[in-house]
């Protein structure tokens, strides 16, 4: 994580702001996108490489709905006593199904996502974590997802 925001010029910002979606599916997509941005094909390619290099963008390409590809996901939370926190975190993280895990400021202080190939494995993983830690795993599966207007304005 950087402490200082990156120095980006107007063209960098325009690329980041306008190319968060809608990259063409065509033979020469960079040429097409570059025209909309007032750049040359090679100019856009070079800028994207540079933005990735300096970490202004983490990825460039298609973003997939993981659940639509057959995977299963579930947000889970636990109320972990402070003195046991690090030991419990190690036990939880040891499960390969735990994709990410955050400490958060709340009575429910450990929040993690289980990611498995099938829905049945979610329940098995949650039960295994309960057995390992002796603590309840609260399951918060998504019931509806709203998708979504998130725009990072560079």
């Amino acid at each position: 994580m950087r402490r200082q925001p990156l120095k980006l010029d107007a063209t960098d910002r325009q690329i980041i702001n306008l190319l968060q979606e809608g990259f063409p599916l065509s033979s020469r997509p960079y040429a097409e996108a570059a025209k909309r941005l007032g750049l040359s094909e090679n100019g856009l390619i070079a800028r994207l490489g540079m933005l990735r290099e300096i970490g202004a963008i983490t990825r460039f390409g298609p973003f997939f709905d993981a659940a639509a590809m057959g995977g299963a996901f579930c947000l889970c939370a636990m109320a972990v006593p402070g003195a046991e926190f690090d030991a419990v975190a190690a036990k939880v993280n040891a499960h390969a199904e735990v994709a990410h895990n955050y400490e958060r400021a709340h009575a429910l202080n450990m929040w993690f996502v289980l990611a498995t190939e099938t829905p049945g494995e979610i329940e098995a993983a949650a039960c295994a974590i309960e057995a390992d830690t002796g603590l309840a795993v609260f399951r918060f599966p998504k019931e509806e997802e709203f998708f979504i207007g998130f725009r990072v304005v560079a």
Binding site: I16, L19, Q20, F23, L25, I57, P62, F63, F64, V152
Partner: peptide, 21 residues
Amino acid sequence: LQARGVVRRIGVAPNHYALGM
């Protein structure tokens, strides 16, 4: 895949930490 929603979008993923968020 995009029409079915398996591909949600094609573009850049801004690093919001690097961009100051």
